[in-house]
Structures are given as structure tokens and as C-alpha cells.
Simulated assay, not measured.
Amino acid sequence: MRPTLLTALALSAALALSGTTANAAPPQLALPEPTGPLPIGTSQLHLVDHQRLDPWAPDQPRELMTTLWYPAAPTDGPSAQYVTPAESREILHHLQDLPPVPDDVLSTTRTHARTDAPPISATLPLVLLSPGFSHPRAALTGLAEDLASRGYAVALIGHNHESHATEFPDGRLTTCLACQAQDYAKVVRTRGDDVAFLLDELPRKTPLRPNGIAMVGHSIGGASAAQTLSTDPRVTAGINLDGTFFPALGHDLAKPFLLLGTPEHRPGGTDESWDTSWPHLTDWRRWLTVSGTSHSSFTDFSILSEQFGVGLPDEPLDGHRTAEITRDYVAAFLDEHLRGIPQPLLDGPTAGYPEVIFENPATRDDSGQASRGRP
């Protein structure tokens, strides 16, 4: 399996190493505090596409669970649940050699949003988040919360049957049927269709009226971001967080795009799809890698695995530092391309982030477009 396809296996290996603490109290799991000034609300959205059969369960219509995060009015009440107890049990079931912990321990993870808190506005820039293959959508919760605290609406998409665990409001729990097929090009196509359906339904099911839309994906979710930008004119900018392109881009994509990955995604690295796709990114573009990271560093698993007693394998960089880097560079990209606010952080290396390497520095012309080719 390529490093870019690692999913819960990275967390699995990390948790397996924590067996020496098996007799200790269950870990207290918590996501880092959001960095923006705004309180956060969240709600769950269950959608059924009666015009499309599920590609992994063709006797059923396609269903999606989506978690919405947004800046909200201050309100009291408990914080939102990270995953349900049933989802926690199923996720932990797929982790090998797990030391004894309560099977609902992931559902106890502390978040920072209030369920169904009233949003401060219906008109906000929207960020679509697509998780890695087999990951629950919750794996990008920390990023979603941070973006919401900075003033973005965020739709964290659960692609049914592509995660180890998705619980629906009626109590049904679906698992990763797509994991049996491992048809990654089909996953990418399916996610593009999921996004199109979600964007059709949002104005019908919610008060949200986006004033700009971007898509950010981890692993195969990053490949899906490129697919969506290629096919849906409503989505105008995208980010691939350490994901192999399935397939590599064979056509020009004239929309702003950021590649952010591990050192294995350096030019000439093990994933040739980045080298092949790069010349086809013909608008604003950056190719960044982060020293000391591994595939799941760009997810919540980096911090959560440390709270189990160890870090991710092959990740010497601290989980809070990887979260800080991911949040700041993703937010800078979105501020520039959804809000039109120039971000010097994206212009080149900075002393504040020595871990971030600009693999293909790009110059701005008067339109802000990146120059093509390598320096």
C-alpha cells in the first residue's frame, strides 16, 4: 500500500504501541482550541439522493451524513459529540492490537462547538471537507472547528460506505463496503457526485447561502477536490492534503489549487501523480511539504494518538504543531481565494514556519496568477 493511501492504519499502529499504559485510566481526549474569535455551532444533515443508487450498495439510494460547522451566537450547553458510541466501537474494532480501553472512548473526545446553536449569518464562504479513505468524517473535525471560528461555514461530508463507521439518525450503522473493492478512481467519481448533490440540497435544507465555495480533502479526499473543481463550476478553489491523484490530472485545471503534503510528496518522490498533475494546475498554485509529518498528520489522529501516549509512526513533529501548520496554511489559502485578502504566508518560506518547504515557488503577476513551470 502506498504511503498516501494509509488511513486508520497509522492511528492503529500508534495505539498499538501504547499497550504499556493498558492498566491506566482511559485517556482524556480533546481537540485543540480553535484559533479564531467566533463561537462555533454545529448540526447534522441527513440527505437521501433518490435519483442515484449507491455505487457500493446498488440496491439502495445514495445517502450522506454531513456535519455542518459555522460561526454561531454564544450559547450554553454541552459541546458536540466527536463520534457516536457505536461509531467509536466500530472504528476501534479496526485497530489492531489495541490495548484495553472503553470501546466508546472516541465518543468522549472533547470538541468546542454547541449543537444546533443559531448561526450568526446565512451568508458565509463555504468550505467542503472530504476525509481520507476509510476515515470517519470526524477525522477532520479540528480543522472544521478552526475554520468555523474564523468565519467560515464548513460542510464535513460523510461519504457513505467509504468509512469504517457512519451512524444515521435512525440508528443504522454502515461500514466500509468500498474498502473491499479498493477502486480508488470510482471513489473519486462518487465523491464528486456526492458534492454536487450536497450543493444542490444545502439551500433546500438549510438557510445557508454561500458567497464562495472551496473544497479541501485529505488523502483520496484531496483527489476528489481536484475532481470536483474540474466538474462543478460552483467550487472555485481547492486543496489536496497529502493525497494521491486518482487518476493524475490529464487536463488543465484553471482554478486556484494548493498541494500540502509530507516529505514523501516532494518532487520526484514516491507519488508520481503530484509531478504529473502539477503542470496542469494553470491558475494560482503552490506545492508545499512539511518536514516531520506523516500521512495522517493533517488530521485529528496526530493529536489524538499522542493523547493515547505516543505519536503517529514516522511523525517526529508534535501533533499540536502539525495542527497549527495545517490550520494556518489552509486558512491563508481560503482567505486569499474566497475572501480576496492577500496572504504573504503563501508567497514563500517564512521564519515562523521553517518546517514548510515551498517545492515550486511561484511568482505573482498583476492578476495574482502563479507562473508555470519549476524555477
Rank of each mutant, 00 (worst) to 15 (best):
R339W: 01
D193C: 09
S230F: 04
N211V: 13
D365G: 08
V330D: 01
L53G: 04
E167P: 11
H164A: 01
G311H: 03
I357Y: 03
V330I: 13
L143N: 03
T350Q: 15
T190K: 04
R2A: 06
T21R: 06
S88M: 14
T276Q: 12
P39K: 06
H46T: 11
L345V: 10
L128C: 07
D271G: 02
G132F: 04
H218Q: 13
G171P: 07
L17I: 00
F133N: 00
T276A: 11
A196P: 05
H94K: 08
L338Q: 09
L106F: 11
G142N: 11
T21E: 04
G19F: 01
G238M: 02
L124I: 09
S79A: 14
P102R: 09
S297W: 02
P256I: 03
A332Y: 09
A178D: 04
L128E: 01
R364H: 14
F257L: 04
H94G: 11
R110D: 15
G268Y: 01
T276H: 10
P32L: 10
T20I: 06
L317R: 14
T299H: 07
P247M: 05
K205N: 05
A323W: 02
D347L: 15
G352Y: 05
P263Q: 13
E264C: 06
S107Q: 08
L47W: 08
H320V: 09
L95R: 06
L64Y: 07
A139Y: 04
L198Q: 14
G311T: 11
